[in-house]
Design a protein around this nucleic acid. Structure first.
Lengths: 300, 300
DNA sequence: CGGAGCCATACCCTGGAGGTATCATGGAGC
DNA sequence: GCTCCATGATACCTCCAGGGTATGGCTCCG
């Protein structure tokens, strides 16, 4: 499949008439007809319903159209942005992160770096394992995760340890308390993220298991927002890093845990033994402030 | 430009060696060399620095690589999802929205609809004007905006009126008050969204102007998050619809206004005179509950 | 029932993608 | 400083696939 197919498809999906679409594309109708057929066979789905009086999009076709527009748009903006970057002599700086570190101060780092006019920031949501690979390949320059991974080419730094909190539905019996894990184990659990493993989910399970507590998993969720929605719907409770409490939601309360030492680290990864670029130095300076603010409990 | 170019580019960017990349792509080196050159000329930027000992990505090349990966990934997932959709006989349902309506109950609608296993939801961030076009073309089935637009093929319904609130930096003199517009006019304003106009920004300006108040615009911002960051940095204050107060941020407080009748509507658009599909009926039912919850002050 | 509109099929033609052979270049090794 | 080798660039050829033309077949409409 080529972009050509997508361009043709978009035009046909808009016109719903091969002859007219072909005219707009400055080509004859038969080859367009053929390309569309070819696209359908490559995608492996009927995209149009043919009738003697024009075409109609199938549901799959509608879906494909929507995403095709997004793809073509992304292609255009990528080209434009690349040109701009080439002309401006700016430099790229890539940051990888796992979703759960992106609720706290990390956005501040991003915002500060974005304001530098000599750097083009690229963000990528990556698991900690993917971050190591992305660091080595130069796709990213800095990674934020929650797991320690041994790799000779990557150095890791523990920025800080975050307490875990329990997210409870409003009005829950433990809502105004500082419960122990044992108390929480009485209630069904919403596990997240379900994919990819290993993750916070396994850590959560491990915490309970190590204490000999048996838990019921009521439901798994992939995204924080889903997990919180499930909690708000009283399907279960869940454990989250402290940063998440920034996500205020009606129907949810966060409580600290009575058990000491229940923390999840935020770990920063870099390529080992590389002289820090000017941007990296800036990032380090900002990070230092953020970590210091966190330690002192002061926020910007 | 074709996807072929992007596929080749990705391989070369990973190998940083034309000969090896060509081997992996099961082709000879010279045509690959040519295709890469062609890509560079079409993009209008040098993507590689050539040396006698392999290639190196330029900053623009790094940026392009990152986004190319995303594009190719999106192509693959789109094809896979389209196939699934075609096999499952599910139906597509598109929702367009302006960002500022997406902080309140709307996510609840999305979540509920997503759980139906006969519907594939597609979300698109669109301005109210774009929504009208997208409705007509069938790209979306339901639109949520903040402006009334007259169009014979589209019917609009005012779901509810939302009070406007002022977002102030923590510790601001008016922070614990219920200020009037006149009081707020004393302080510089952060205007948002700056693009596209007309928007909430013009409404804000209009509110002040109609009362004969002169305001200073300290800064414009395109995104809510930026606007709030500027407010937190004490660059100015801004007016936001009530839903936004869900976005809790350190350094920001929201206060209601003393002036009565300062509201921003949430308007729902549909194609006129179309028999509601089963999914549309479900959506309507959910919407009714949401609106009712809002009126009664009860939240799910 | 005939014509108009539209998509599909059959067949031809040509541009460009890919192949082969070879050149140009610069760093490594002696 | 010379040679060798790895690597990318260039030149030229081949052939296939994308696009064109002609035409058939199906529906809907008057």
């Amino acid at each position: 499949m080529e972009l050509r197919h997508l361009r043709y498809f978009c035009m046909v999906a808009e016109e719903l008439n091969l002859t007219r679409a072909a005219a707009k594309l400055h080509m004859a109708q038969p080859p367009l007809s053929r390309q569309i057929k070819q696209l359908e066979s490559e995608v492996g789905a009927e995209l149009f319903e043919r009738s003697a009086r024009g075409l109609r999009l199938t549901p799959a076709g509608q879906f494909f159209h929507e995403h095709t527009l997004q793809i073509l748009d992304k292609v255009d903006t990528t080209i434009a942005a690349t040109q701009r970057l080439a002309r401006s002599k700016r430099v790229m700086f890539g940051i990888g992160f796992v979703p759960s570190v992106f609720y706290g101060q990390l956005p501040l780092l991003v915002r500060e770096l974005r304001q530098k006019d000599n750097v083009e920031l690229v963000l990528a949501e990556l698991t900690t394992v993917q971050q190591v690979k992305a660091l080595k390949s130069g796709r990213i320059d800095l990674g934020f995760g929650r797991m320690r991974i041994d790799d000779p080419d990557v150095e890791q730094e523990n920025l800080f340890d975050e307490p875990l909190m329990a997210a409870l539905p409003e009005g829950h019996p433990l809502a105004d308390t500082k419960p122990t894990l044992a108390q929480l184990a009485e209630y069904p659990l919403v596990l997240f993220p379900a994919q990819p493993r290993p993750s916070l989910a396994d850590m959560t399970l491990g915490l309970f298991r190590r204490r000999g507590l048996k838990v019921t998993v009521a439901q798994e969720a992939n995204e924080l927002q889903t997990a919180l929605a499930l909690v708000a719907s009283e399907i279960g409770i869940t454990l989250v890093p402290e940063q998440v409490k920034r996500v205020q939601r009606d129907g949810i309360v966060y409580v600290y845990l009575a058990d000491p030492g229940l923390t999840s680290p935020v770990i920063c990864s870099r390529r080992k033994g590389e002289a820090p670029s000017p941007i990296m130095q800036e990032a380090n300076a900002i990070l230092e402030v953020l970590v210091e603010n966190r330690r002192s409990g002061r926020y910007p």
